[in-house]
Design a binder for these strands. Structure first.
Lengths: 209, 209
DNA sequence: ACCTGAACACCGTTCAAGT
DNA sequence: ACCTGAACACCGTTCAAGT
């Protein structure tokens, strides 16, 4: 009669599941405080569990992060689906991106982990990254065809910009301006109808840098 | 008759100076390849020097980075001075910011070190950060009063945005778009004459995020 | 005045041995 | 089937001892 513990792993012996659940709770608390580079040893220690146990449940640090962020990913994807057909395309995209930044900022440094996982198919975070990028891309395409999003950007560009904003939020010295700068950058993503071929033409050299 | 080795430390015994110089050269090569988190132990080892020697010349990792970037800082400040009176204010600012990003990207991860040093007066990088921010601010103010830079941003905001772009450049999966995204963000910094009080008003909620 | 390297307290990761 | 912790190869940092 036990309720199906959300996102719990498949068949698992009772004692193992208990370990797993507790480990995850402790890990969440520690990573929340220390960020993604928290000591795995410390997590195992504080959870009262052998190091090997942690490693079997989460063979890599990314696997642990992936599990810690499971809920956030699911909510982001659900939200994207909800926004897809409804409301103004531009507002839908911005609203979703804002949530994305908030989700990524749950744990300090996670945006850098995600970016690494982006191009690394062997990473436990890769699948989530790809899924997130896919829904992001859909929202973007709609905002480009039906809204005013500039069409010289793709999903990866948006991911980069929003990741960069999350990075700002991760820096204590800059975090207080993260919200305002989010708006500034969004202003650049929607640069007005039909987008003139070179909005940034005044800036010249471009390219190399 | 020896030429005054540029940026060399003050009085120093001949053998010590030789160690110092060689250490720095080896460190440069390694940090260039490994980024700012390169193993200090490894640097000392490859330089054929005791660990203590490295620590006396560079009591902290930041002190080493500061020395490695000395040239870049000086050039950036000189360039700012040169740009100050001359040329179009907007172009001057953008051109300088581009150079700033390029300089920071010399060593992977340096932008995060700088940002930490920003609010930490005890950091060996702090003075350089402050100096850089100061000249950045001057260029910004001129672009705001004589050019078209929006005036709801200050030097720290610009530092954050440009740091974020450098962060993008540090991520292998995103680096190829760093140049284009630099232009995109610059487009948001110069949002046209006299700046309407709310260019991003369409985006609504603002604030919290 | 300068240098060395052992010592200490940490890591991440693996894997034999236990229950 | 699951767990533990020693073992290994690394860190950063300090500091007594050497020249």
């Amino acid at each position: 009669m036990r309720s199906p513990s959300k996102a719990a792993p498949p068949a698992m012996r009772a004692d193992a599941r208990k370990n797993y659940e507790h480990l995850l709770a402790v890990a969440r608390k520690i990573v929340l405080k220390e960020g993604v580079d928290a000591s795995l040893r410390d997590i195992a220690r504080k959870a009262g569990v052998g190091l090997g146990t942690l490693y079997r449940h989460f063979p890599t640090r990314e696997a642990l992060l992936e599990t810690l962020l499971r809920t956030e990913w699911d909510e982001l994807i659900a939200k994207a689906r909800a926004l897809e057909g409804a409301g103004a395309p531009d507002e839908a995209l911005v609203s979703w991106l804002r949530d994305f930044v908030a989700a990524v900022r749950t744990y300090r440094g996670v945006v850098t982990s995600m970016t690494s996982a982006f191009a690394d198919e062997t990473s436990a975070l890769h699948a989530s990254c790809a899924a997130i990028r896919a829904v992001c891309n859909q929202l973007l395409v709609r905002a480009q065809t039906e809204g005013t999003a500039r069409n010289d950007l793709d999903g990866t560009d948006l991911f980069a910009l929003v990741g960069a904003l999350a990075w700002i939020g991760d820096q204590p010295a800059l975090a207080s301006r993260a919200g305002a700068l989010f708006d500034v950058v969004m202003g650049a993503v929607f640069d007005g109808r039909a987008l003139p071929p070179k909005k940034t033409a005044q800036l010249r050299p471009a390219g190399v840098f």
